[in-house]
Design a protein around this nucleic acid. Sequence first.
DNA 1: TTTAGGG
DNA 2: CCCTAAA
Length: 674
Amino acid sequence: MVLKKRVDYGFNGFRVPVIPKAPRSARRRVAFNKAVEDGQVCAIELLASLAGQLLQESESSASSNASEGNHQPAFSQGVIEQDIQDEVKPLKMEEIHQGNCAESTFKTEVASQKSSQKPLSHTKTGHVSVNNSSDCCEKAEADVKSEIFEWDNKFGNYSNRLVETREKFRVSTHGNIKNGFKWEQEAGSSCIRGSNLADKCSLEDHLELYVSPALIDSKSNIKSPFHRKFFPSASFSRYGNGIKLGFRDDDEKFLRCKRVCTKPKAFRSPRRIAHRRIRNLMSSKYWKTAPKLKDCELSDLGVPRYHKRKTCYGFERSQHNAIVKKRKFVDRVSGVTSDGGFSSESVSNSPQKGMDADKPSSSAKLHVLKAKDSHVKFSIKSIRIPELYIEVPETSTVGSLKRTIMEAVMAILGGGAHVGVLLQGKKVRDDNRTLVQTGISCNENLDTLSFMLEPTSLRASPTICVGDPSSQCETSQPTWPTETPVLDSGVTDTLHDSPLLTYPGNLIESNHEPTSSLADTTVNKITPDSRAIVAVPATTETLAVVPVSQKTKRSEFVQRRTRRPFSVTEVEALVHAVEELGTGRWRDVKLRAFENADHRTYVDLKDKWKTLVHTATISPQQRRGEPVPQELLDRVLAAHAFWSQHQAKQHGKHQAGPGTLKITEASAERPCVC
DNA sequence: TTTAGGG
DNA sequence: CCCTAAA
């Protein structure tokens, strides 16, 4: 799926997943188990680190070989650097779980180039679908498709030759799949072998990495540098076809380090950030419990979507820390922009049937790092594809839906999209202004800075219609709803041309900011194949084509707040507060009854009261939404009548207000305070 | 910033 | 819910 990108390098595959054995001591074991459960002990992390190390070695080896006039596949340093820093290369997988089926797509593509004459170079992507792997199932078979990219000696380049293989795997569960299962390849030299929770107690007191033999240079001592640099307490030894990475029991500290995200010396890999990302894509938990996706869902694109730092492992924070840690010169990190951009999820003028993927929204989440050197560094965490319309038959498979979305996304990215810049909710239109002039370099503004994708063409065909495989509707270009022309007579300030449409499609432009070389490692490249793209949670709503008037043009991308209807409980609280405070003191009402409801402003309360009064006035048949108890509506009417004739604004009777009212006013209109 | 009202 | 004049 998936933003597949063929890489020019590869490796022979790490074997996943592997989990270190639980420590011996009970206390440590508890901590360990928890870490495992939380997905915080991730073999992938180790793998990635290892990969990073191997890469480094291959780099140096390649360069040294090159200097010897050897015609090596020349992993030019640049290539490797770039690719690795692209963060998504080394490992990735996705899974989808549906009923009794588990599907996994994995991709291993970590470069390693150790052997002299026959450089290894293939990327392996696989698709595993495990059927019938319900809890009670003992065994299941999995088909694996591999795409292998190989080095082509003829052309002196990676041929990108696609080799598809089908391999049989057997998945053995240990009674209950919750306890884990084991992958074993029936045939083939490149095994996938691993174990998970179920095995952790039976594992040796080490972590085993099965690495392709090609990764081990018979002459080169991989063990030593790797050992010292990354895994102080680890030891390497040959193990069958691979190498075995062992950890001593005292590595508990390593586990703990990872948990709190302190700086584990053992993991000060230069590829740290990339590895973090890898883990995001491929947590051990993810692997472990393929059929048991519960904490992490899949978003539309099949990318794991992590819930708010709950069980799903505070990856974001970790990564964040990693970034900050890596860059000592960074003296300030501004906050992450909230959901910038626009996502008018509440607007739904033309309901579409059974839509799954919508919530059209485009925004960028980013970190903006302000560095001493007057450079503004942007680390865009994700950028969403705005307003993607997809329509598929009910009978289409999830897989086809995913492919459809993928196609749409790729069409957008490939077909030319621009990056829009939003500052404080408003488009920054003038491309010629500097960041300073625009205020983007201003710390206060960074919080409100966001990016979004914008369509190149304003032409809009409403949906992507995808039929079943046989009858394909023409895959129309994904489109955005009609957007207000940017070119119309300029009510806008300092609008000379249509700078929004200045940049040609390449989204890399979004990182066009001047940066130091260091920043390059920070910035997520927003390339068409970037895995940073995050699908937006699906809702049942669809954004209709909303014409935007010229007058509102300037704020057309200001996100409307999500509609959050008042619950009966809230209404009750509101009524009660108004009964006591009156109708002219909404701030007080807010403070009294909605102090902790950040999403309810005093204006909201005022508005709600207004609608409540209206609701109470009309007949029950005309009312909509969640019905408000008549009793409450009666109180609304009573309070409204009382306070409107009582002039609530008169100060000086805050506390006495209700009481006074209770006794002195006409009892018929007295709001019921009980 | 809050209030008050129209949209 | 949004927008804004007015206080």
